[in-house]
Amino acid sequence: MYELLKGLGAWLTGSEQWAGSDGIGHRLAEHLQYSLLATLIAAAIALPVGLLIGHTGRGAFIAINLSSFGRALPTVGLVVLVFLVSGLSMWPVYIALVALAVPSIVTNTYAGMTAVDPEVRDAARGQGMRPHQVLLQVELPLALPLIMTGLRLALIQVVATATIAAYVSFGGLGRYVFDGLAQRDLVQVLGGAVLVAVVAVVLDLALSALQRVLFRHRPSTTA
């Protein structure tokens, strides 16, 4: 165990390890690109769907079941399947990661919308606000904390799962995990795993900091 950690220290701090197309710098950039782009695409799909379901109250059954369906979908199988169908393109990675992220965002957005006090909604309508105004100026701001929770959860899952991309010959930090597995080089596997975990934790902290800055005027997120 000690040897492994010592090796990890040397692996992470070696300057040659950070440079070049197989260097940590490049792999990190690839990993961030897969994760952030996939989460953005997922948000672009899932947020309107979640808001619409929450606003109209229709399709709640779909929202709830979608989340357990999404959790059950085996990412490895999905990546391989899309890879076999589409050949060597970026589709397998993005389709699998977006499919992973959409359910968390839809369910949390929906949950945020249902948590909005109906009296507040009625008051907004009573004041003569139009439906889109109620949605954008009243419901959306009140639902934002839970929406952000969904986005953070999705991002963590996507960052951890983007590792799988390396199996179908893509880059990202998963390269180290799969190459290390093939070469029986545990230091490399550990290095890749630690980097992925650090990226996930840092991105999560960054989003929660963003959330605090954006809503600092609000006394409490539960109110």
Binding site: I164, V189, A193, V196, A200
Partner: peptide
């Protein structure tokens, strides 16, 4: 934090 570690890495690191 355990949740953020990729599952494939956990399996490989348990091999020893």
């Amino acid at each position: 934090v355990l949740f953020t570690i990729p599952s494939i890495a956990v399996f490989v690191l348990l091999l020893p």
